[in-house]
Amino acid sequence: MIRKKSRRDEPLDDAELARVLPAPGDPHLSLDRQLLLEEHLMNEIQSTAPAPAPSRRPARRVLLIGVPVTAAALAGAFAFTSLTNSGGSDPVAATPPPVEAPVVGVEPGSTARLASTVEHIAAAASARKTPEPGPGQYIYIKSKVSDLAVSHTDTDDSKAWVQPLHIREVWNSPDGKQGWLDEPGYQPKGGITLDSNVKPSLGAPSYDYLKTLPTDPDALLKKIYKETKGQGNSPDQQAFTTVGDLLNEELAPAKLNAALYRAAAKVPGVVVVEHAKDAAGREGIALAHVDRKSGDRTEWIFDPKTYTYLGSRAVQVKRAYGIKPGTVINWTAVLERTVVDAEKQRPGAQGTRA
C-alpha cells in the first residue's frame, strides 16, 4: 500500500515556522541578570589568573553605561547587589541605589585669565605648608565623591544615574607599599587593603616617588606626555587627567604641586571656568579641559580667595552615550588631607583606629 505523504510530514518553511511558533522574546538582559553574569565571568577570570595589585589611585569608577533597563529595575538591582573584595568573601551592605545625576548650566571656559589664575594657584601652593610623612606614618585623605552609574534607562533616555554622594577615606604609606581604603557601601565592611609591591609610577604614585619628579614645569610635562603615551582618549586629555589624579588622593610636596599647576596650564585646550561647585557645595574657580571624544569637561576647583584645591567635577558639555549636556557625571570634594601615625587612624583620634 502506498502511503501518501501528508502536509505534516513535510518540513515547514520560514513563513510557516513564524506563524506557528511564539514570537521571540526581548533579547536584552535585565540589569540584575547582567550583573550576575558579569560577576560570574569576573570570578572565573580571577580563579585562573593571579590577582592584580590594588590600584594606587582611583580611576573614574563607571559601573555601567547605557544599559537598557527601567529605572525601577535599576534601583532594585543595586539595592540587592553586594560586592566582595578581590580574593575575599566579606560582603558589603546593600549598595545604595543610584540617584538622578545633577544637571548644571554649562558655563563657557576662557583663556583670558588662564595665566594669572594659574600663577595665583601655583604661588599659593608654594607658600602652603605641607606635612612631611615620616617612617611608619600614613597619608590620610577624606573625600566626598559620586561617580556615574548608568548613562540612561530604556524608559527615560534623558536622565543619567550616579552614585549618591558618599564618604571615601584612603590611607597610604609614603613608600606606597601599605594602604587602606574605606568606602562604605562600595567596599566590604571595614574597607579593603591597598598593600602593593608595584613599582611606583605616574599611574601608581607614592609620596616618595612624587619627591623624585622634576619641579620644572616643562620637564615635568614632557615626562607626563612620555610616560602616558598611548593612554586615554588623546595625549592632551591624558596629560590633564594624570595631573588631576595627583591632586585628588595624593599628597605632593609644595614645589611639585606648583609645578603640576604650571605644567597643566601648558596643555592645549585648558581654560578657566569662573564658577564651579565641588561635591561639598563649595563655590570656586576652575581649571578645565574637554575630552573631545567622550564630550565631558573635567574641572579642578579652587577656592577663589585662597586658591586652595577643593575638589573636581566632570560635566558633560556635548551629548554622548545618551548623556545630555550639563549632566554632572563625576564629583569630588577633598574634606581632609593630612598625616596620621597609623593605618586606619583618623585625624584627632590619635591612638584609635577605624
Rank of each mutant, 00 (worst) to 15 (best):
R3W: 04
K4N: 02
K4C: 06
R7M: 08
D9V: 08
P11E: 12
D13Q: 11
D13S: 09
A15Q: 14
L21C: 09
P22R: 07
G25R: 13
G25K: 09
H28E: 10
S30G: 15
R33I: 11
M42V: 07
M42D: 07
S47E: 06
S47Y: 05
A51L: 15
R57H: 08
L64Q: 15
I65W: 14
G66W: 06
V69F: 03
T70K: 08
T70N: 05
A71P: 08
F78E: 02
F78H: 10
F80G: 07
V92G: 13
T95A: 01
T95N: 04
A101F: 12
P102I: 11
P102V: 12
V103E: 02
V106H: 10
V106F: 08
S110T: 15
T111F: 02
L114Y: 09
V118W: 09
H120F: 13
I121S: 02
S126V: 12
A127Y: 03
A127D: 09
K129G: 05
P133R: 10
P133T: 08
G134C: 00
G134D: 06
Q137E: 14
K142G: 15
S143M: 14
K144Q: 13
D147W: 02
L148C: 04
A149L: 08
S151K: 05
H152Q: 05
H152C: 00
Q163P: 02
R168I: 01
W171C: 00
W171I: 07
N172A: 11
S173Q: 01
D175R: 10
K177Y: 01
P184I: 05
Y186I: 06
T193A: 12
V198I: 15
K211E: 08
T212C: 14
P214W: 05
T215H: 00
L220F: 14
K222N: 04
K226M: 06
S234V: 02
S234D: 02
S234A: 13
D236H: 12
F240E: 06
F240R: 04
T242Q: 04
A254P: 06
K255S: 12
K255A: 10
L256A: 00
V267L: 03
V271A: 05
V273F: 01
V273I: 15
V273D: 00
D296R: 06
T298R: 12
E299M: 08
F302G: 08
D303Q: 02
T306H: 10
Y309Q: 01
S312E: 08
R313C: 07
V317P: 07
K318C: 00
G322M: 13
K324R: 14
G326Q: 04
V334D: 02
T338C: 11
V339D: 01
V339M: 05
V340M: 07
E343W: 00
R346M: 14
P347E: 10
P347V: 09
